[in-house]
Amino acid sequence: MMVKQAALGLAMLISVALSPLNGTAASLGAEPSQPDTAGLAANWLEAAWSAYKQRFVRDGRVIDDVNRISHSEGQGYAMLIAVKAGDRVAFDEIWQWTKRELYIDSSGLAAWKWDDRSTPKVTDKNNASDGDILIAWTLGEGAEQWGARDYRDAALDIIRTVGSANTTRGREGLTLLPGRIGFSPEDHPDGQVLNLSYWVFPALERFKAFDKQTDWAAVQRTGLKLIQESRFGPLRLPSDWIAMGSGQPAPAKAFPAKFSYNAIRIPLYLTWAKLDKPDLLRPFVGLWNSELNLGPFEVDLPVGSAQQTFGGTGFKAVIASAKCALHQEKLHPSLRKVEPETYYSTTLHILSLIAVQERYPECL
């Protein structure tokens, strides 16, 4: 009964989220009239990063405490927070570990999974394209911030390798593959499998100016088009993994047809890039009711039912960032200070606050 009530509440929230915007003030990308950043402490990021390092970083290795592994995504996220916090020592330590332990394959891409309990510790040499994208983005940011040519050269090498090894020309346009192996039409009965949360839109914005060998604007357009088309079930949300074999996106058969821990990142990346695509954010903004503290939920897409809640404040912060972008809704006071939780929730919380502070300071 509790699950049914939660599902009903979620459906009601989503119906509100899908209602048309009223007036130009709520338009995505509207310029703030009088930005006010007083909602965050002046040193909030330094404090959050210090606590993050203490809990999740060991000698340059970032530890996913729930899955008990390290991965390229986590290394990239931590490097991104470090460069935003201006911590070059930690940034370089994380990069050196990443380069030494993950960039071990002749492909020039990072092995996605590293497990301290295994021998060898790299248990899967396939790459995760979002991990490489995050690492390359942060190296470019570090090169710009600290004038480091070696960071710039490394960033460009990774960007160009992702462009050649992880993109393919599909029906929708230039498409980003989740990894270099295992996602082609020949690998799955329902066709090519993609992950829409791997389109890190703020990184792609930077890549367009950084590298001319790959048409990153086309990659970005394809991602936005696929998000628009991947609206499944009564709540019109994307699944974590989609397949393209039918000609139109559909939940991939090899994975649960759920909106879950992958797809939750999509609204964050849309918000951070400040793309003028308000319709893409509407399905997400009803996932958390801040007044009732209801949600956000994982969603069984075929029936539109709420399942378990995402565990942690960071997932609420993602939805709050989308509400800010879409409706200029100020962040709830409970989200304005980062208290370390699990690796993933804490990471998303910090990144959501950075995104809002950079793009929509009027929401703070």
Rank of each mutant, 00 (worst) to 15 (best):
V219W: 01
A38M: 05
Q34H: 12
T309M: 15
L335A: 08
P361C: 07
Y360P: 03
Y77D: 05
Q308L: 12
C324R: 02
D157T: 14
L348K: 07
A355R: 07
R88P: 00
L275W: 07
V356I: 05
A263I: 00
P302M: 06
R61W: 04
D276L: 13
A111K: 02
T214R: 09
G173I: 04
K316D: 09
N289T: 08
A26R: 14
P333D: 00
I354D: 09
I319A: 09
I63H: 00
V62M: 09
G170W: 04
M12C: 08
N166D: 14
N166H: 05
W241H: 01
E93P: 10
K53G: 10
P238R: 05
L224E: 05
A209T: 14
S321G: 12
V219Y: 00
T342M: 09
A7S: 15
F297S: 06
K113C: 06
L226I: 00
A273W: 09
A155Y: 02
R221E: 12
L281M: 04
G182V: 07
F56A: 01
I69H: 13
A48D: 08
K274G: 05
A148L: 14
D65G: 06
A154C: 09
W272Q: 07
L237F: 12
E73F: 10
R61C: 07
M244A: 02
A143L: 11
G170D: 00
R169P: 01
D116E: 15
E341C: 05
S107L: 08
F210P: 02
Q145W: 04
A30H: 02
K253D: 14
L294D: 12
P283S: 13
I159A: 05
D187F: 08
Y343H: 03
P178R: 06
D87A: 12
V193P: 00
W95Y: 14
R336H: 06
W137F: 13
K53I: 10
Q308D: 13
G182E: 06
R265N: 09
K125D: 11
E93I: 01
A25N: 14
F232G: 03
P283V: 06
Q248L: 12
T24Q: 15
E229L: 11
L281G: 05
D187N: 10
F259C: 08
N127M: 06
R117P: 08
I227F: 08
V303P: 00
I14S: 14
P267C: 10
W216Y: 06
T123Y: 03
W137E: 09
L176W: 01
E362P: 07
Y360W: 02
Q307M: 15
F315G: 04
K253G: 15
D150V: 11
E205F: 01
Q54L: 04
Q357R: 12
A254E: 10
S321T: 08
H327I: 02
V3N: 14
S72W: 03
S33I: 15
G182H: 03
D300G: 11
Q75P: 11
V356M: 08
W49V: 04
